[in-house]
Nucleic acid binder design. Structure first.
Lengths: 115, 115
DNA sequence: ATAAATGGCAACCTTAAGGTTGCATTTATT
DNA sequence: AATAAATGCAACCTTAAGGTTGCCATTTAT
């Protein structure tokens, strides 16, 4: 007998919360948007258009990196950041699990009403 | 000509950030897990097993409610909470958009390498 | 009529989040 | 060699997040 979906979700909760928290800021979401085309961009480039200090952006990038959502590599005088798609995939499957639970509940409810 | 996926994501960033932030806490994620089976539960029920004060849980439920992820209804002496699946669907499609951008980038890269 | 459950409200505390400014350091330009 | 660009580091500030405790109000159960 397989373990319950609830237990699956509970097990994955701490890791998922970290990624969700990293995405839970408009600036960081903007950074992810800028990087989701697969490009490698410097801090200066990523700062451009965001009306915040370079240091602020740098901090946000640090948060994203701690959550493993981006990785950076120093090249010459600049740090290049690139998106890591793995954590996004993880929360995607997390959300899918939540949704499937919900859908199951709807199905059961429908069955109950029709009896 | 359709607008770019980047522009689509940018437009949806503020709303998405709110939902992500609401999910970016282990306790709130645990509450969502408890509710994702479609049940209506009181604050006391939701507090059970979470080693936090009822007030703390109540605050977290307030955050979830502000993000429209749950809705509450007072019945008798208790407040019953139920999950609202709409915001989850919204961030699901948001993530799908990010992922599709990433996939497009991979495809273009592959095409470039094979030339 | 009491006592127990269930919540709401408010005050208060501690710490981390989000930002800024200033300065030093390392690379690239001219 | 001198300047400009791109960061890193550290100190500092302000505010909100996450929690707790205490007390009062309202329902329900005995």
């Amino acid at each position: 007998m397989p373990i319950s979906a609830q237990a699956l979700l509970t097990r994955r909760t701490p890791a998922a919360a970290t990624v969700f928290a990293a995405l839970g800021d408009p600036t960081r979401l903007a950074l992810v948007t800028k990087l989701c085309d697969g490009s490698r961009q410097s801090i200066a480039q990523l700062t451009d258009g965001l009306s915040l200090t370079r240091q602020a952006i740098s901090k946000h990038l640090g948060v994203l990196e701690d959550a493993r959502m981006v990785s950076s590599q120093r090249t010459g005088r600049e740090s290049l950041y690139v998106l890591n798609p793995v954590p996004i995939g993880e929360i995607r499957s997390y959300i899918d699990l939540v949704s499937s639970q919900w859908d199951n509940a709807l199905t059961r409810l429908k069955g109950f009403v029709e009896e």
